[in-house]
Nucleic acid binder design. Structure first.
Length: 693
DNA sequence: CGTATTTGACCTGCGC
DNA sequence: GCGCAGGTCAAATACG
């Protein structure tokens, strides 16, 4: 006699299980006896941990008919014993199905036994009801999704109309873009630049999340105006937005450790594990993972700052200070206090080589809405960390020619990695970096000091390669000032009271734009590529720059660089938020001919502004927020003044560079992005003047 | 008095 | 196993 066992781990041994098993056998003409056992812990066996089985009933199936046979379950026995007894009671069968024990905690109480015997018929009806309910829910879900997408479209349309109203004159000043955009709705692009924390990793899901963030939402008490997502996305046809993939290749706009932390920590409510947690977790085999948590990616920001800390807009509480080896300056430990459960911490330490340089290492990802003023650094570090991860996963780039290596510089944020194991990655600089980092934690350094006077050097990358004796800082400065396009962060306090411009960066941005488009829609990408190529030619010819070929090569390198978006995201967001060191901003963002902002999808959305009228939140009650903010501003100005001039003077010879001028005006000003006609349309007196000359 | 910072002690990981 | 260094805690202290 063949014995067929059916694992019915599905649980309760009710009519559903029986029916399913029965139907399975009905399909099979062979008769069967279905024996159902309920598992429970028999007292005699409890000490040994063995289970006893109480057979509940048997179901005989033959010729499509089945009948239940109750079994005396008063005497526990093994399944084999009951099977043998059943064989004696039942008609000989050709096949048996044994539904094996269910979970002990699912043992049906004796009061339900009778009900279960009769439940076979009830279960059929219930199953039918469940199926109907399931269908209803599916229909409801589809309806909700449809409505949701409709609302998304309506919202985009409203945004578009609003921007068109705000920028009619500006749109008229952009005939080139008008012609470009008028070619069809497909070419009309929307770069949704949303700031903050939340950014999904999946494409469509991410987009939906962002749209949710755009929609009115209950305001955060602490930051009532801020409900921002940290992402850079590019949309095309609003009607098809549901199918648009998120552009950013960031694994998440949050720090990469979010990938691990969020899944392993934040999802489960786990935050930065305190030592107490370690204490309590030392016993127990299931805590091994906690004792060996995944290495957290860190982002170290180098910036010139005289204040004890950089004003990155967030609220921090100092919880420790330690003098680290090799650096006489103590290292201060801060944790984010915006939210009690926020796992983000940072370390602040002066650079041993240059006391004016502040090394701020961020670790973790905020799990709360960020102040607008804090999104700059958060997004920057997130992008850098994402770059670190993406670079980690981008292998095979070990033998970059110089122009490709320069592409890293194109990304402008001077990402580099101190880990020797990553020495072949494109963002790696051939210098040992005196960054403070634990060797166990991958750390990417974001150098914001490259605008120093040494920037006046015009040495090329190759020259940099030969400058082995240069210190790290100067090397970075020259590196950033190579003849290749660069994305420079510069800020000038001299233009603090005016909306400053971000200009002359068409090729860089178009490359970025191209990259974005490539990620979204190949067809549109082709069209845009053609347009951008034309625009680039126009700009190059206007500027008569002899480095056109190299720039074009660099641009090409950018478009093939999957990590460029990360840098671009960081750059844009840092600019938008007025800079962590500046405290406030009135920034006009101009990216060549193209708008960056909440543009609509229509072809007439030529020049639009995305405004955040909220005042920048001032850090309060924090170490640097309350006490050090003035110093930070002073610090920022000193640093930024140093950096702005050389950058501005050098960049105007580099039509491919993406010039960033940032106001450090502490007075909150609306942040506007607007499209301007041509790379020379920058409104910055400094920038404009240089290029006009 | 509440909150933030300081600072010594403690814990943990890592290298030898 | 031991020592070192990094990191964190928490009581003490400072500050508004």
């Amino acid at each position: 006699m063949a014995m067929e066992k059916v694992s019915a781990r599905a649980g309760i041994c009710d009519g559903l299980v029986l029916e399913e098993a029965c139907h399975n056998k009905v399909a099979n003409p062979a008769p069967a006896i279905i024996i159902v056992y309920h598992q429970c812990i028999f007292p005699l066996h409890r000490s040994s941990g063995r289970h006893a089985y109480f057979p509940r009933f048997a179901l005989q199936v033959e010729d499509g008919r089945h009948k239940l046979k109750e079994i005396d379950s008063s005497k526990p026995s093994s399944p084999q014993q009951h099977r043998s007894s059943l064989k004696a009671d039942l008609e000989p069968t050709k096949c048996e199905i044994e539904i094996l024990p269910i979970e002990s905690n699912q043992v049906v109480s004796p009061s339900k036994e009778t009900e279960q015997v009769d439940g076979l018929q009830l279960a059929r009806a219930e199953m039918g009801e469940v199926r109907e309910e399931n269908e209803r829910l599916k229909m409801l879900l589809e309806r909700i999704m449809t409505d949701y997408k409709t609302l998304q479209m309506q919202f985009l349309h409203m945004v578009k109309q609003d921007h068109q109203k705000q920028q009619p004159a500006a749109a008229a000043n952009s005939p080139a873009i008008a012609a470009t955009s008028a070619q069809g709705p497909e070419e009309s692009s929307l770069v949704s630049l949303s700031l903050g924390l939340d950014s999904g990793s999946s494409s469509s899901g991410k987009y939906e999340k962002e749209k949710e963030n755009h929609l009115p939402a209950p305001r955060n008490e602490d930051y009532p105006h801020e409900r921002l997502a940290l992402s850079l996305d590019c949309k095309f046809d609003a009607a098809n937005m549901s199918g648009i993939s998120g552009v950013s290749n960031l694994p998440s706009s949050t720090s990469p450790e979010l990938s691990s932390e969020n899944h392993k920590g934040e999802e489960s409510g786990e935050i930065w594990p305190p030592s107490k947690a370690h204490k309590t977790s030392r016993s127990g085999d299931d805590q091994v993972s906690q004792r060996n948590p995944p290495k957290k990616t860190r982002v170290c920001v180098r910036a010139r700052c005289d204040a004890p800390t950089m004003n990155d807009g967030c609220q921090w509480r100092k919880y420790g200070q330690k003098t680290a080896k090799g650096n006489p300056c103590p290292r201060a430990y801060y944790r984010c206090t915006v939210a009690a459960s926020c796992p983000v911490r940072k370390q602040v330490q002066r650079c041993a080589d240059d006391m004016s340089i502040l090394l701020t290492t961020y670790e973790g990802t905020h799990n709360h809405p960020l102040p607008v003023s804090a999104t700059a650094m958060a997004s920057t570090t997130s992008a850098a960390a994402s770059m670190l991860l993406s670079g980690s996963s981008t292998s095979g780039s070990g033998h970059h020619p110089p122009e490709v290596a320069a592409t890293a510089n194109l990304q402008g944020l001077n990402f580099y990695h101190p880990d020797p194991s990553r020495s072949k990655q494109f963002y790696q600089l051939p210098y040992s970096l005196p960054v403070m980092s634990s060797p166990s934690n991958p750390t990417i350094t974001l150098d914001l000091t490259s605008g120093a006077p040494v920037m006046s050097s015009t040495s090329s990358y190759a020259h940099n390669q030969l400058s082995s004796g240069a210190n790290y800082y100067n090397s970075m400065a020259r590196y950033n000032n190579s003849s290749t396009p660069s994305l420079n962060f510069t800020t000038s306090e001299t233009i603090a009271s005016q909306p400053t411009a971000w200009g002359n960066g068409l090729p860089s941005f178009t490359a970025a734009h191209h990259e974005l488009f490539n990620k979204s829609n190949p067809q549109e990408s082709q069209l845009l590529h053609h347009q951008l190529s034309h625009s680039q030619k126009t700009n190059f010819s206007n500027t008569n720059n002899p480095q056109e070929s190299s720039i074009a090569a660099a641009t090409k390198a950018i478009t093939t660089d999957p990590n460029f978006q990360s840098a671009l995201v960081a750059a844009l967001k840092s600019i938008i938020n007025g800079g962590g060191g500046g405290g406030g901003s009135g920034t006009v963002l101009t990216l060549g001919n193209y708008l960056v902002g909440g543009a609509g999808a229509g072809g007439d959305a030529l020049e639009q502004k995305l405004r955040w009228n909220e005042g920048l939140t001032t850090s309060t009650g924090s170490l640097f927020g309350q006490k050090m903010a003035p110093q930070v501003n002073a610090c920022g100005s000193s640093y930024l003044n140093k950096s702005s001039t050389p950058n501005s003077t050098s960049s105007h010879h580099q039509p491919a560079s993406l010039m960033l001028l940032q106001s450090s005006n502490p007075i909150p000003l609306p942040i506007s992005f607007h499209k301007q006609n041509g790379a020379n349309a920058a409104t910055s007196p400094v920038d404009n003047g240089d290029r006009n000359s």
